[in-house]
């Protein structure tokens, strides 16, 4: 049973973390809550507005459109990156020099700063000078991500897949390497097919790391800002204006701090809810 020794002073060791979280998360969050019920025109002068901004945001077509775009983007990249990451991890060598080479190559996109990734893909995909843009147009497909919404979406998704699939690969690979050889030997004796090994040994053993991969990719993609901002600036029109880009436009472009604060709280609650649902669903079977 519980044989841990009670040591009340241990709580003191938690204090620095509590102070840090208070300064970088709680106090700013409290300030956002305060802003969300007020109107300001600067100079630290505020007028109480109640829940007006929340009502306005919840009934705003602009917010609905960015939320739908955000959900579509996150859904698409999760549907691509998770299976692709697992598939690549399965094909990587288990040991030897090639394992190290693959790991370094996989880690490279993760080391590039987000704004550089956006700038790289912007130039890479430009129809006039970019290699990708020239190649697609050379194949007879009319492609210009600065003018066509579908092309802008295609480029944004491709960029995200290029940048972040590696993270899923590295996590899945770590999960695969933690499976003892005895499992594979037992499967071999039983004459299990490749699919059966994947379905009943590898996939269940990767569950924990895949949960982390899904959560990380979900939260990151749901809050994506820098890469699409540098690549498309939210355009053409509003085609790639995701929630965070819209939020920055409202807060800093229009200086509507009240509506922006209300929107960011709704945004935060959606991220919190979806993360909780993902986590609970993925951990549920394991607990049972």
């Amino acid at each position: 049973m519980n044989n841990k020794t009670a040591y009340p002073k241990a709580w003191l060791f938690v204090l620095p973390v509590v102070a840090l979280v208070a300064f970088n998360a709680l106090i700013p969050l409290m300030t956002v809550v305060n802003y969300s019920v007020q109107e300001t025109f600067g100079n630290n002068v505020f007028f109480f507005e109640g829940v007006k901004w929340f009502e306005e945001v919840l009934n705003s077509e602009r917010f609905h459109a960015s939320l739908l775009r955000q959900l579509a983007f996150t859904g698409i990249i999760l549907a691509i990156e998770i299976p692709l990451g697992v598939a690549i991890a399965l094909t990587m060598p288990a040991r030897g020099i090639w394992a190290s080479v693959c790991l370094v190559l996989m880690a490279l996109p993760l080391l590039i700063p987000w704004n550089v990734v956006g700038a790289m893909w912007n130039i890479f995909a430009l129809p006039e000078i970019g290699l990708l843009g020239q190649m697609i147009n050379g194949m007879g497909i009319d492609y210009n991500f600065t003018q066509q919404p579908m092309a802008a979406w295609f480029t944004t998704i491709l960029m995200d897949v290029w940048h972040w699939t590696s993270l899923v690969v590295l996590l899945a690979y770590a999960g695969l390497r933690s499976i003892p050889d005895a499992y594979y030997q037992a499967a071999k004796i039983d004459g299990a097919s490749g699919w059966a090994v994947f379905r009943y040994i590898q996939l269940p053993k990767m569950k924990r790391v895949l949960t982390i991969a899904v959560l990380l990719r979900f939260m990151d993609s749901f809050m994506i800002y820098t890469e699409p901002f540098v690549l498309t600036g939210g355009g053409p029109g509003n085609a790639t204006t995701f929630l965070s880009i819209d939020l920055v436009k409202i807060a800093l472009g229009q200086f509507d701090l009240g509506p922006a604060a209300a929107m960011s709280l709704i945004y935060f609650l959606i991220v919190l809810l979806l993360s909780w649902v993902f986590y609970t669903l993925m951990m549920r079977d394991e607990e049972q």
Partner: peptide, 15 residues
């Protein structure tokens, strides 16, 4: 704490 723009309703919520 004026920069945090406190109001009584939000203070009550956090309390």
């Amino acid at each position: 704490l004026s920069w945090m723009a406190w109001t009584w309703p939000t203070a009550a919520f956090f309390i």
